[in-house]
Simulated assay, not measured.
Amino acid sequence: MRVVSLVPSLTEAVALTLPGVLVGATDWCSHPAGLDVARVGGTKYPDLDRVRALRPDLVLLNVEENRREDAEALRAAGVPVRVTYPRTVPGALTELAELLAELGAPTEPAWLRDARRAWAEPPRLAAARRAIVPVWRRPWVVLGGDTFASDMLRRLGVVNAYDQHPERYPRHSLAELRDVEPELVVLPDEPYRFTAEDGPEAFPGVPCALLSGRHLTWYGPSLAEAPALLADQLARPVRTD
């Protein structure tokens, strides 16, 4: 089996579980450290010629991470693809288990068992907080409902103010976001890199929690440590008055 992954979180999952299977990954696949496989460009604009040259038995993609046209082009070239689309933590755990078994893992890896235990009873905020979750700033884009990250936050005691919005990633002006009057603003460091100096100042007087974007949005080995890490970050917001 020869696998090319165009999804950073799946790259990490496959590389740690079945290291001999992975033959290619994107330039953005940063985990595990020291990963030594052929690089095929970005997640949004991979070099499909380089992908095909690796003669993969399967290419891994994701609905949010990759473009539909790339999946269709690979299929048209006779390259098998698997498109993932987890929208809940249980869904991600199930999808990961099924994928790894299909790739030849004899049993579930230890990190996946640890992730199941970690999310069975995750730590929660002492009181539920109604929040907005910007994922981009220019323009402002926030996390909507029916998303994996929104489900993760809900399990940690964060109520997404846009959970019922018809769009999965609504765009609003800063004034509109402020009008929601959130009790908390969650600022992940990816895909937009929010920092203590870039983000909280837009929401004066509102606690802002700076979160690890990798642990909020990746579905792979990081799931095992995500509940404790994110809960700690949520409990230590910064505030701009």
Results as ranks from 00 to 15, higher is better:
13 A>Q: 01
227 P>W: 03
180 V>D: 14
114 D>V: 03
144 G>D: 02
178 R>Y: 12
130 R>E: 14
211 L>E: 10
56 P>D: 12
158 V>A: 00
92 A>H: 00
27 D>L: 11
218 W>D: 07
171 R>A: 13
175 A>D: 14
52 R>T: 07
172 H>I: 07
48 L>A: 10
186 V>L: 13
144 G>M: 04
97 A>H: 04
136 W>F: 11
234 L>F: 04
133 V>E: 04
51 V>A: 08
152 M>R: 12
148 F>G: 03
136 W>G: 02
55 R>A: 15
91 G>T: 07
75 R>Y: 05
160 N>F: 05
7 V>A: 03
165 H>D: 13
152 M>K: 10
233 Q>V: 09
148 F>S: 03
149 A>N: 05
34 G>V: 13
89 V>L: 12
19 P>I: 02
96 L>V: 01
93 L>Q: 05
31 H>Y: 15
119 W>A: 03
24 G>S: 06
201 E>Y: 12
25 A>D: 03
12 E>R: 01
170 P>I: 13
172 H>Q: 12
233 Q>D: 09
181 E>F: 11
56 P>F: 06
161 A>G: 12
196 A>Y: 06
170 P>L: 14
170 P>F: 06
240 T>W: 15
171 R>L: 11
172 H>Y: 08
228 A>K: 08
64 E>G: 03
49 D>T: 08
144 G>W: 00
140 W>M: 14
174 L>V: 10
62 N>K: 06
197 E>F: 11
185 V>P: 09
96 L>T: 00
77 A>Y: 01
107 T>Q: 14
17 T>V: 02
48 L>H: 02
81 V>P: 00
126 A>W: 07
140 W>H: 14
58 L>V: 01
229 L>P: 01
147 T>R: 04
155 R>G: 08
149 A>M: 07
229 L>Q: 12
4 V>H: 02
208 C>F: 08
166 P>S: 11
